[in-house]
Amino acid sequence: MEIKISVNVNGKNYVREVEPRTLLVHFLRDTLRLTGTHIGCDTSSCGACTIHVDGVAVKSCTMLAVQADGSSITTIEGLAQGAELHPLQEGFKECHGLQCGFCTPGMIMTAADLLAKNPNPSEAEIRHGLEGNFCRCTGYHNIVKAVQYAAEKMGTEISA
């Protein structure tokens, strides 16, 4: 039995039939072929699948696709404004906040939510805010710097 859902993903409307048990992350990856959202665990522990649902960071493996019916979703593919990178994307590149890149989409989406709630976080607040996302490559050092870079840049942009 398939259920029809309607979602807006990265500004585009999709109407699709999904199985009731399909997780949102599988819907994004397999049905819409947006493979920037990754799967790193099966216990909602790693954060590699983090996306925004109606503006809030969500681990997309904790949600069924049918629960997203009617919602507006942003994935890593939809974060940049055309050719212009989001300040976090820029920060991760400038500060070497990524190595293998597998955790990066989830890390950036989590950080975006963090900065939306707290535009000027301390180092401790950044570390606490990223606690739900594993990175095995960077030791988090440069990820923290990347978030600080973005916070500064976004602050500058707002005040300018």
Binding site: T35, L85, G101
Partner: peptide, 10 residues
């Protein structure tokens, strides 16, 4: 290589 990874295109 960063560009593809930060835009979800790895």
């Amino acid at each position: 290589e960063d560009k593809r990874f930060i835009t979800g295109k790895g």
